[in-house]
Design a protein around this nucleic acid. Structure first.
Lengths: 134, 134
DNA sequence: CTGAATCCGGCATGATACTG
DNA sequence: CAGTATCATGCCGGATTCAG
């Protein structure tokens, strides 16, 4: 009975499209894989180098999840050592827009979030004090 | 040494703004909290009801994370049973745009992803078969 | 009312070794 | 080359209980 485990969010349990999508792009390497494949086709090993830092196992999981959602096309070439090519589908290309918008926002407001964090952490360090000591 | 644990992604370990943001909005209830607070202020209990399904603990964590990132403003009113109000900051309001774009895409292409999954899962069920058995 | 403290299961990520 | 198998780890999300 298909030993496929459920890693990298393989389920459909969810009914909210937004959460569903976020489960996908929220997983650690998904966006970087999509970026790496933007406008080009890569083989498995090339992807492994392009993403850099991802473990083989997790890369496979990420690719499977993307393929399952129709965002990625996996092509096997029956050469002697088998070669496999990965490419984004038109569906994924359409996702690129909103994703880029989000990425742009993240880069633009990075500084705001960092300073907000510093302020928050600093405040947490002095629980009950109004005047700054010395 | 500050017993603050690290749940709901409190760290800054990351250097990529995009992944950083995705860690935030990727956590299970964040987007729903943001939606619930869109254009209005809510108290803790009101939020608890508005989001519906979130546990108290996780809601607190989610709110803390948002506050830490400067996306949420937390106001304590020293009434007899203390009341606390939560409201989005202008920063979060700006995030609303890209977020809505992503949500729209998710809703628009939900059907594509669902059918892609069905096809994928169906294919996985019959590993080495070309003709569909009656 | 608004949390904090504690305990727990489950799953994603990762390291390592093996294979067609 | 492109994975699979196995083991280990961390931590998110949830339930429950206590407190200011």
């Amino acid at each position: 009975m298909s030993p496929r485990d459920t890693e990298v969010t393989d389920q459909v349990t969810d009914v909210c499209p937004v959460r569903d999508l976020l489960d996908r792009i929220g997983s650690k390497w998904t966006v970087q894989v999509i970026e790496a494949l933007a406008g080009r086709t890569l083989r498995f090993t090339e992807l492994e180098r392009a993403v850099d830092g991802v473990s083989r196992r997790v890369l496979v999981r990420t690719l499977r999840a993307l393929e399952r959602d129709g965002l990625l096309r996996r092509t096997v070439h029956p050469t002697v050592p088998v070669t496999v090519e990965y490419a984004l589908t038109p569906l994924a290309a359409g996702l690129g827009g909103p994703l880029t918008a989000l990425a742009d926002w993240a880069r633009t407001h990075r500084a705001d979030m960092v300073s907000a964090r510093r302020a928050y952490d600093a405040a947490a360090a002095r629980p009950a004090l109004s005047g700054d000591p010395a």
